[in-house]
Design a protein around this nucleic acid. Sequence first.
DNA 1: TACTATTTGAAAAAGCTTCTCATTTAAGAA
DNA 2: TTCTTAAATGAGAAGCTTTTTCAAATAGTA
Lengths: 144, 144
Amino acid sequence: MNIQTVLAGFKEKGLRLTPQRQQILRVLLKAGGPLTAREIAELVHRSFPNVGLGTIYRTLDTLKEFGLLDEILFPDGGKRFELHRKHRHHLICLGCGQAVAFPFCPADCLMKVAEQNPDFDVRGHTFAVFGYCGDCRKTQGEGG
Amino acid sequence: MNIQTVLAGFKEKGLRLTPQRQQILRVLLKAGGPLTAREIAELVHRSFPNVGLGTIYRTLDTLKEFGLLDEILFPDGGKRFELHRKHRHHLICLGCGQAVAFPFCPADCLMKVAEQNPDFDVRGHTFAVFGYCGDCRKTQGEGG
DNA sequence: TACTATTTGAAAAAGCTTCTCATTTAAGAA
DNA sequence: TTCTTAAATGAGAAGCTTTTTCAAATAGTA
């Protein structure tokens, strides 16, 4: 996904292309992984020091509403955001917080669940794997 | 898991069996599904109106520390708690909030992830399925 | 009973997210 | 370019959940 696509989508929906929104989008596009609202705010502030957290959250809400943004729930309850890229799950390092996406779903489990709960209308699922990345294993991942 | 087991575990660890903790445990044992901290507090207050939220959270922390409590993250970021019962995942209704546990894990996906990330030391995972239960489908689950 | 470290209640504080509202501004019209 | 207007913004207040603080109470033991 590039910024042109996103901005075109914005225009289609009648949303204004404010500099703040553009900067928030650039930050999300540049991000190597999912970011917290605060991290997004800090990065945006490098170009627009006065953007309020309200604006950050409002923009994130707007993006979510249009399916452009994914929200990732970390095991401690913390939320992170990244631009939507098909359906993906994450491999998350408990040491450094780095998250790597992978594109496949727990198919076997979903099938079993659906089979065993025929009355339940499955609409979605979450799946995330936690542990320690190669770098963190050397320092903090052992013996936990 | 019954209250005797839990209380015995408490004693072993040198924890005091205060009436507040016992009541929190009873509430968790009686619960039909995972509860929010506030729900636990409300139920505890029926017997002990003055138990503070601080005590609730501290007790939940203690239980988590000893592996007696599981925390479930809902898709909106809300947290719920239930006494640990082996390793389980949840089928959660977006209509009424009811959560049903199931005892199997997304094995295929976990294997793939581990294979594709040999440097990563996998320590855990989360998996939850969301949708609408039979009751809610009749009223609010259609066309969402 | 007396002792003491643990636990508690109450309130304050902290952290994240949402809301409020006067002001600003993007986008289109003239 | 200037005007118009609804949408968006910044700043701060407010709302929630969770954590911390600390004097007072108490479980467990001697």
